[in-house]
Design a protein around this nucleic acid. Structure first.
Lengths: 121, 121
DNA sequence: CAGGATCCCCCAAGATACTG
DNA sequence: CAGTATCTTGGGGGATCCTG
């Protein structure tokens, strides 16, 4: 990453697009400890609908970050887990999350300060 | 970052939202070496309209990541630069960018493979 | 329980044109 | 050159209903 190739066309955009979806990073993070079933993910995460969960999982699967497992057992047991590639993303995700922990307050303070000046966004 | 607080409500979401906008990270990165004028940014980045550039800059400013400078000189010289807070985000951004460099090919390969199986998305 | 199908809303983002 | 205003659109994402 010493290049200026970060810009419009570059493949770095590819990674940022991965973070562009509301739930992508959340889901990857929720899967960091191993396979999870959809119902577990929904409980663990909270606030995500069944439809969106599936969509997001499919998207991650499409990008080779998540693998779908179907135990063709009795009550259609399905689970998802990170692929090797998906696990490599945990580092960057953690970096971002750690930043939020360290500086989240500052951002919120800045937002309030800016909002107060203008109109109270 | 050892918590499970990554999920729906948590403040980690705040950081990911920062990456959720197409140009946020790109602009922060473009500003990593110091102040830049809008016209410079547009040239450097490419593919961003004047309107979107301003919007993005405003958003970053609102979040306390970027500061606007106006040299009240002759032809309305304006420049933007990272705040101290903004500079702390360069680390995570670099982490993500580095990941893209290391694994971008794999993701694209996975996309093609997945697309080929289905219908050629 | 998994997840597809529908309908709807919102807003980021592009195009274009205009003002200081 | 900087920035705004307007119009339009694509698609993420929520809600709801329905099926295997």
């Amino acid at each position: 990453m010493t290049t200026d190739a970060f810009l419009a066309d570059c493949r770095a955009r590819l990674a940022f697009d991965l973070f562009s979806n509301t739930w992508n990073a959340v889901l990857l993070w929720a899967l960091r400890d191993g396979p999870r079933r959809p119902v577990e993910l929904r409980e663990q995460i909270g606030g995500i609908s069944s439809k969106v969960l599936t969509e997001t999982l499919r998207r991650l699967q499409f990008n080779g970050l998540v693998e779908r497992r179907e135990s063709t057992g009795t009550p259609a047991r399905v689970s998802y887990e990170l692929t090797a590639l998906g696990r490599t993303l945990l580092g960057p995700i953690d970096a971002v999350g750690a930043w939020a922990f360290a500086h989240g307050e500052e951002v919120m303070a800045a937002q309030e300060a800016a909002g107060a000046q203008t109109h109270g966004d």
